[in-house]
Amino acid sequence: MSLLEIKDLVKRFGGLAAVNGVNLSISDSEIRGVIGPNGAGKTTLFNLISGALSVTSGTITFNGQVVSGKRPSHIALAGLVRTFQRNAMFPTYSVLENVVLARHSQVKNNVFQTIFGRNQEEEEHRERAKEIIHFMELSDHQDELAENLSHGHQRILGIANALAVEPKLIMLDEPVAGLNPTETKMVTDHFRRLRDEWKITVVLVEHDMRTVMETCEYISVINFGKLLMEGNPEEVANDKRVIEAYLGSDDYDL
């Protein structure tokens, strides 16, 4: 059974259809890449799935629950968490505080208990936050302010923040954009571990084909708001239509 099921998804801006009838099915414990040239509709698709944009028509089902039309926060609580292209962290908080804050949704205390209670629960969340930071290999930087971290570490913190929500599926928006090769490797190494050790489905929405080829097992290619083809990295790399699509957009960098 698929974890994320997208059916006939359409998004129009005025008369222009940025996403024009996309069907996509992602199963549990996959590492899936979604690629496409600039302006193919990747970012729009991403924002539709995460709830940042409202869909024009079609449905998005996650874990048996229709999530299209829900607020981003509700979708996150359902277990589908996104990251951002920019650095997704609260800059003036420490690394640990960032993850504790991102665990907010897991806290069961209500307002009165939070204000008047003894916060036994918050201690437990702090422990879990430390586990996540340890898993993401950020323990050495736990007490540093997020804004003082290196770019690569900030990106990893962004993923740690997403993990704090205890997602079933994590959707990464160009996670290595603007990073140098060393930092890129540092970030992408985590994706496989997320799936293998924590059984989290990873969806990578990327512009850079090399990263996707190296990390994903199965790839969906989007062009002109539609699904162009799907296949394993080798099939995609050798597909004439894909090469043409990238050539046509003159950012061919295979």
């Binding site: 995460s50 709830g51 940042a52 607020r71 981003p72 926060s73 509700h74 996150a76 609580l77 968490v81 996104r82 990251t83 951002f84 997704a88 962290m89 609260f90 800059p91 003036t92 908080y93 505080e97 504790v100 804050l101 991102a102 907010h104 949704s105 806290v107 205390n109 307002v111 939070t114 204000i115 008047f116 916060n119 918050e122 923040n161 997403a162 704090a164 929500v165």
Partner: peptide, 27 residues
């Protein structure tokens, strides 16, 4: 106590970055 609690920190956090706050499940 509100200011120092998780709720107070959520208030400032959602002001810092509304999109990020939503993405980690803050309504």
């Amino acid at each position: 106590r509100i200011d120092q609690s998780r709720i107070g920190k959520t208030f400032t956090a959602l002001y810092t970055d509304e999109g990020l706050a939503e993405s980690v499940g803050i309504d």
